[in-house]
Design a protein around this nucleic acid. Structure first.
Lengths: 237, 237
DNA sequence: GCAAAAGTGTTACTCGTACACCCATGT
DNA sequence: ACATGGGTGTACGAGTAACACTTTTGC
């Protein structure tokens, strides 16, 4: 139980699994839903794309580990992480027993700069629709699939969008585009407006905005931050 | 990364966390929802009640570990386990870093005989309503609370009851009692019947049953096992 | 005969969904 | 003028929730 430290090694009476975190970072760029992947520098699965992630340190929470790994492999932090599931089948990693707690996040793609980290030669955004099943390392196909299902089912119940849209305000059309991108299908404009306004989490500002080219002026809304925090609404993912 | 085995000890270049599973076993006895707890034999929290659980072996899946621990501390297996959440804050276990994957199950209490296992002097069922917050070991209060929330929210969407009611058949009143026990509130008889029958997962047998004392004969239903498995419905928890 | 349990329909409300037109503006 | 995008209301169906009385039977 107690590790006996002798010259940079730790000895235990029983073998122990490794604990990792993996993060499914969904990103939105224009109107496409993307996911952040890293290309593995080393074996196993050298050269293949995988979810960002890495080992959990002894003195950090699982969520902190996820944030740190993300910071190491990208450059930014995400404002909110949600635990998705824990994968721990023996054999899911050829190197040995690895138990991975998977988190997910939702961000604006362009704000997360990609950079190569320790385990990765390259970090890149991929539109989720373009990812062929069977191409990701480890069991990451399965993980991505679960994350996508969860994200979409959450989108049906919970408002999402804080953090995806500018603090300064946004139009309902912009918010609708966010939802359509996540759900991967078009939504009815009138129904969407009714529903999202009925949550009572948006307020109307006095500003309006002109569309890029032609068209009516759009009213600008903001999230009612007070109500969001008061009601403890998890608006992020 | 690779453990070097020398005289019953395992040495790694970095410290490693312990991996455990804990199981929230909900049980139904008559009309009360219970949870299975074990009294700890050893420190920390010696003498206090805790969720059953234990260490994950290297060659078993997380779910198999949960089943094994349950078998060791009770005597029966449960037919279905569902992963709930993974708790891994440093400091949640005073002995060191312990990452625990929590599963939940739902059974008939009387069918799970309780016995003392390795880590427990005693194993007992407790009605969930009687458990005072702050009395369980570790962060198990928080875990139980989350499990209860999840169970109840599942009950609102999914049919539950297979495994809780006798194979030979049951009356709709009995099924209703199951739901009421889980949800902790009374349900309208007519609405309940309409809804549960609309799932199309029950079929009517020719048998009837007499209530214990006075009252109309009740018709006996069975689950349509064919449809359950065909539609892959997770009827258990 | 009375207590106990089974069984049975209707109404109102909420929510989701489908659907079409006019308005303001930039080019 | 026309193309582009913003904004609005209604009707139908599904599901949920509330509500009371009659029937059978054991005691």
């Amino acid at each position: 139980m107690k590790p006996s430290k002798k010259q940079h090694s730790y000895t235990y009476p029983f073998p122990k699994a490794d604990n990792t975190v993996d993060i499914v970072v969904f990103g939105l760029r224009d109107a496409t839903l993307e996911v952040l992947l890293v290309r593995r520098r080393d074996d196993p699965y050298k050269g293949q794309w995988a979810l960002p992630g890495g080992f959990v340190n002894m003195d950090e929470t699982l969520e902190q580990a996820a944030q740190r790994e993300l910071r190491e492999e990208t450059s930014a932090e995400v404002s909110h992480l949600e635990q998705l599931y824990t994968f721990g089948d023996p054999g899911r990693d050829p190197r040995g027993r690895v138990i991975s707690v998977v988190y997910m996040a939702l961000v604006r793609s362009p704000e997360i700069a990609t950079k190569a980290g320790d385990d990765a030669v390259e970090t890149r955004w991929f539109p989720v629709e373009n990812i062929q099943i069977g191409t990701l390392a480890f069991d990451h196909d399965k993980i991505l699939d679960l994350a996508l299902t969860r994200l979409r089912s959450k989108a049906r119940w919970q408002p999402l969008g804080v953090g995806l849209l500018p603090e300064e305000g946004f139009t309902l059309s912009e918010l609708q585009t966010v939802y359509e991108s996540i759900l991967g299908r078009p939504l009815d404009k009138r129904n969407f407006r009714r529903k999202v306004l009925s949550f009572g989490l948006l307020y109307l500002t006095r500003q309006t905005r002109h569309p890029k080219e032609g068209g009516h002026q759009a009213r600008v809304y903001k999230f009612d931050q007070g109500r969001l925090t008061r009601e403890g609404i998890d608006f992020e993912v």
